[in-house]
Measured scan of single mutants.
Amino acid sequence: MTEYKLVVVGAGGVGKSALTIQLIQNHFVDEYDPTIEDSYRKQVVIDGETCLLDILDTAGQEEYSAMRDQYMRTGEGFLCVFAINNTKSFEDIHHYREQIKRVKDSEDVPMVLVGNKCDLPSRTVDTKQAQDLARSYGIPFIETSAKTRQGVDDAFYTLVREIRKHKEKMSKDGKKKKKKSKTKCVIM
């Protein structure tokens, strides 16, 4: 069974824990209790493949930012979460993405942009803004509501699919490099 290491990042209060708990335990946590770091595991079937999701729910508070490099190193894919009623959390996505790329030393890291709290009427981040940002990053965008469960499975499952595509691409690139290195030079 394939294991996928997913990391949920975003500013404090955007609903990272609520999304994760909704996926794992099928219930909505409405009281806000700032996370330092929590880890969850769940076995699911995605596109006919049974897999184990190892999900790291991270601290959004700035005082825990020193811990970010460590979990970013171990993560295979990242859910970059903002709240649709919090423009600052949307603007912060850029910083999370840049930090992930720096730590992973790669421009090509599996990510999904997630606009959470889409059940709320007080939207300050337009869907088109988020779609445009995701398009500019070359990553999928999904709106979710941890409260109603809308888009929750889709967000995590899409990230797994992005990781699969990335692994497939990397193995193809690896095979191309191996083929090239088999060419021999004969000096007579």
Rank of each mutant, 00 (worst) to 15 (best):
T2G: 14
T2K: 14
T2I: 08
E3H: 12
E3W: 06
Y4R: 14
Y4L: 14
Y4G: 10
K5T: 05
K5C: 05
K5Q: 07
L6Y: 05
L6M: 10
V7Y: 06
V7I: 09
V7Q: 04
V8H: 03
V9E: 01
G10K: 00
G10M: 00
A11V: 13
A11S: 09
A11Y: 08
G12K: 06
G12S: 11
G12W: 08
G13Q: 12
V14Q: 09
G15N: 01
K16D: 01
K16W: 01
K16H: 04
S17W: 03
S17A: 02
A18V: 06
A18R: 05
L19S: 15
L19I: 11
T20D: 08
I21T: 15
Q22S: 11
L23I: 08
L23Y: 13
L23V: 09
L23K: 11
I24S: 08
I24K: 13
Q25G: 15
N26C: 08
N26G: 13
N26E: 14
N26S: 13
F28M: 08
F28N: 03
F28C: 06
V29F: 09
V29Y: 08
V29K: 06
D30L: 10
D30R: 13
D30H: 14
Y32W: 10
Y32F: 05
D33V: 03
P34A: 10
P34N: 04
P34D: 05
P34I: 04
T35M: 00
I36R: 01
I36Q: 03
I36L: 13
E37D: 04
D38C: 05
D38E: 04
D38S: 05
D38L: 01
D38Y: 03
S39V: 13
S39G: 15
S39I: 05
S39T: 14
Y40L: 04
R41W: 09
R41I: 09
R41S: 13
R41F: 11
K42C: 08
K42P: 11
K42R: 10
Q43R: 14
V44L: 12
V44A: 13
V45Y: 09
I46P: 09
G48R: 09
G48F: 05
G48Q: 10
T50P: 15
C51T: 11
L52W: 12
L52G: 15
L53S: 10
L53W: 08
D54G: 06
I55L: 08
D57E: 02
T58R: 00
A59W: 00
Q61F: 05
Q61N: 12
Q61H: 12
E62T: 07
E63C: 07
E63W: 03
E63L: 04
Y64K: 00
Y64H: 01
Y64D: 02
